[in-house]
Write a protein that binds this DNA or RNA. Structure first.
Length: 434
DNA sequence: TCTGGGGTCCTAGGACCC
DNA sequence: TCTGGGGTCCTAGGACCC
């Protein structure tokens, strides 16, 4: 069995180019929702050294100097283009897993191996011709290796297709790839592996799977097997989402409760629409609000509530009513809020059993952790007034995991007993740092 | 001034049961 | 005050992905 990973090159920037030929061969970037940061770059923009996720304000001068064409994001357009690309791919094989808006895995069962390079080349050219979107194709024995092959295709080939099938060549390639560049290994795990002396993909491939499992759980072990050509990740069918999220930063700081509730209501309406589109019902809604964590000079507050419904629902007004109640419960005066969001959770889709049965009787229940934070915050506010940066650690779990101790010198420390919903006594530490 | 918006999976620990 | 062995279900949180 072989897998292909097809990845659209610089997808959002390429989409903009499809509709404006004057953008060809000039640097193009696409911005995030509030035009806050850069989320897509054409090759020319990458060559200028503009990093992914860069804050626009930091690069405003450079963008201007190099005459970079800058676009606000247009998600309906990108979604539509993505659909066309996926549709094109399905002309070549029915085994298509849409992995993200700009990527798909293909199962290549039934393709004669000798013909594969030509077929993949043909597919890539056709997608380009039918949609205007350039892609890269990586082929290998497992999804993880196909991901790496795709990198090679993008970086080093002229035709955008790379088959990683030669074992000798593969050894050389893996030796040149840093562990963090493997699909599924990011910074934290990369650090852990490096501490174990594993720095390259080749070293991880040759590592003891059991040892890796100890360090990185079964997820890490799977990666080791995948690097060895033993497929642990199958092609997955498209399925209904398990959660639907809608959140935004406000674009300015908001202090009054009703404006936040209004924002939450509109997020909820958007999420409810998506919910109905996939024919699901929500069993709960998770609502969060937060201050701007980048403004360290401001007092910080973030909290979340989870509301369960007696009956799963897709009714917009029910959902909005719940979100509004949650905001009222979470809101604390004296803070300048930056972001809020809702997540419809534990969705019930047609024919599918609901995953869990809720035992909580209360019509509204914030999460236990949320209740504790709330109680502590209120207490601290009462004792000290506002304008305090706080840091809370709770429960036994975190202690046992030996989280890095906070080295900032606490001004004030409180240990609080509380009762969880089941009336088991637990404790929480609250460290107040000015 | 400004620093996104979505998702998934896995595990530890606690509640609860026999 | 200390004390078992087996199990399941649930939640929160920590990782990861694009």
């Amino acid at each position: 069995m072989l897998f292909a990973l097809v990845d659209c090159n610089n997808f959002y920037a390429s989409c903009e180019r499809v509709f404006d030929p004057s953008l060809a061969a000039v640097p193009v970037v696409v911005l995030s929702n509030n035009d806050g940061c850069i989320i897509a770059r054409s090759d020319e923009a990458k060559a200028l050294g503009i990093p992914m996720g860069a804050a626009v304000h930091e690069y405003a001068a450079a963008l201007k100097r190099h005459k970079v064409r800058v676009f606000s994001s247009n998600y309906p357009l990108y979604g539509d283009m993505s659909g066309r690309v996926m549709e094109s791919l399905s002309q070549f094989t029915p085994d298509v897993e849409v992995y993200s808006i700009d990527e798909a895995f293909l199962g290549l069962d039934g393709f004669p191996i000798t013909e594969l390079p030509r077929r993949m080349q043909n597919m890539r050219d056709s997608v380009r011709q039918w949609t205007g979107i350039p892609t890269s194709v990586g082929v290998a024995a497992t999804k993880t290796l196909a991901k790496l092959a795709n990198r090679i295709a993008k970086k080093y080939t002229s035709d955008g297709v790379y088959m990683m099938t030669d074992p000798v060549l593969m050894t050389r390639i893996l030796g040149d790839i840093a562990v963090e560049d493997i699909w599924g290994i990011s910074r934290r795990w990369g650090e852990r592996l490096r501490a174990m002396g594993i720095k390259t993909a080749l070293q991880l491939q040759q590592a003891d799977p059991q040892q890796i499992r100890k360090a990185l759980s079964v997820v890490g072990e799977r990666i080791v097997h995948e690097l060895n050509g033993i497929s642990c990740l199958e092609l997955e069918a498209i399925q209904a989402k398990q959660n639907i999220m809608s959140s935004r930063s406000f674009g300015r700081l908001i202090s009054d409760r009703d404006s936040i509730a209004e924002a939450a209501a509109s997020y909820t309406a958007r999420a409810a629409e998506k919910l109905r589109k996939q024919n699901s019902l929500a069993s709960g809604i998770y609502v969060f609000i937060r201050t701007n964590r980048f403004r360290t000079q401001d007092p910080q507050y973030s909290n979340a509530a989870l509301i369960r419904f007696d009956e799963p629902t897709a009714d917009t007004s029910t959902l909005i009513a719940a979100a509004t109640r949650a905001i009222h419960q979470l809101y604390r005066p004296g803070f300048r809020y930056h972001k809020a969001g809702v997540m419809l959770t534990d969705l019930v889709s047609d024919g599918k059993e609901q995953k869990s049965l809720w035992r909580l009787d209360a019509p509204i229940a914030t999460t236990a952790a949320s209740k504790r934070r709330m109680a502590m915050l209120d207490q601290v506010n009462a004792m000290m007034g506002r304008g305090t940066l706080f840091h809370a650690s709770e429960g036994v779990a975190k202690l046992n995991r030996q989280k890095q101790p906070d080295t900032r010198k606490p001004d004030w420390h409180m240990r609080q007993q509380f009762r969880s919903p089941s009336y088991t006594t637990r404790w929480a530490d609250l460290i107040v740092v000015r």
